[in-house]
Design a protein around this nucleic acid. Structure first.
Lengths: 116, 116
DNA sequence: TGTCATGTGTACTACATAGTACACATAATA
DNA sequence: TATTATGTGTACTATGTAGTACACATGACA
């Protein structure tokens, strides 16, 4: 599933229940030209900027991290956290590269619930 | 310490022992014009591309992740790993944002040594 | 003392990013 | 049926990125 396809599908599903999710009205809310959103949804152009993706995610109730990933991006926010301690996070992420989801999830929980 | 300052300092230290670390020769090895490297070292321009930073890191024996961080970047490689599982990694990184180094290190070791 | 290497100033450039502006055909609706 | 809203085609643009090309002054050194 491409970025554009996913947006179009999500938006037009919402549009069936509520006309405010028409392409034009959605474009207006997120602050871009309708023609541009149209091109985005048909993958005629590359995905938009991080800021625009986040507005889109919020408007369509999509997880911003996931939508950014579909666009081939990682949020500046996460990048900033990594840059604070590049060696540590780089090693951690590489270690977890091939770990199963279960393992990563276990680490997340440990940290959340643990006595750090 | 800025990116440029750090490069200049590292390079000129090396240059004292070995003239092959002159600005011109270094520039040639990493594949850029001397004038450009000069501007980089004096922070007259923004840090170069990821590819050029990595060549610099290798040539000057600097940790690439650290050098990239000084340039305000996170490697595409790490970003790609995150994009594979955006929700999981986003949560993990945010959880660890305010954790002390010791805690992150403990997690790294646990994963490295553990039975994942 | 002539040559060679060094670092730097100035001017220019190719390509990518992230869009806008406007016209147009079609579909819905009052 | 006149109006309004909708999605899209075409053309254009501003800004940023990542450099190159060449000339020039200075210092080393053989």
């Amino acid at each position: 599933m491409t970025f554009g396809n996913y947006i179009r599908q999500t938006r037009s599903n919402l549009c069936e229940k509520d006309k405010k999710y028409s392409l034009r009205q959605t474009a207006q809310r997120i602050g871009v030209e309708p023609a541009y959103l149209s091109k985005i949804e048909r993958d005629e152009v590359a995905p938009p900027s991080e800021a625009t993706i986040c507005k889109l995610a919020q408007d369509l109730s999509i997880d911003a991290d996931v939508l950014l990933a579909m666009a081939g991006k990682v949020s500046k926010e996460l990048q900033d956290i990594i840059k604070q301690r590049p060696q540590l996070f780089a090693e951690l992420i590489r270690q977890l590269k091939n770990a199963p989801d279960k393992a990563v999830l276990r680490v997340v929980r440990e940290i959340r619930d643990g006595d750090w």
